[in-house]
Amino acid sequence: MADTSDLKKGFKMLIDKQPYQVVESQFVKPGKGQAFFRTKLKNMITGAVIDRTYKSGEKLEKADTEERTMQYLYAEGDSYVFMDTQSYDQLRISAEQLGDNVHYLLDNMEVDVMLFEGRPIGVTPPTFVVLEVTQTDPGFKGDTSGNTTKPATLSTGLVVNVPLFVNVGDKLKIDTRTGQYVERVKG
């Protein structure tokens, strides 16, 4: 049995037999009163987000989900096609269910697909992906504003903040958990 100490971003739990994932969990403690966790939970099937408040220490039911390694094949309209690397079964996942992960999908990339009662409900890409810069300003322009970063658009449409020395054509390592620049990849 899980409890409120597990209420961290990404934790999967069952409410009324539906799987929910913690989007946001905030420790709240009024003055000198009891502690609570104010959470935003996303229904992993419908995508609907609900607010729930749990008393610190309350018991929770963990959602049992299954993860399978699948290869990303191609996009078709609003859905993305994946293939199970063991059974060769194919399945489709909607852009809505993929969320921000749409920006990390590269052809033939292997990802972990999460299934709940046999249905795909989400995808976990590799922790780091390498993407190319398609647009960014030349960098430092002679001001003394104190800015040490600038925005850059990457090949998949993702926009990240990067150091000033990054140029168009550079390949960047991106952390898919945070969507943030890690480092420039040589060669």
Partner: peptide
Amino acid sequence: LQIAGERAAICDETGTL
């Protein structure tokens, strides 16, 4: 912060030049 050819951007506590 950036160095290319004959130019370098140097950043200290107050800003960059």
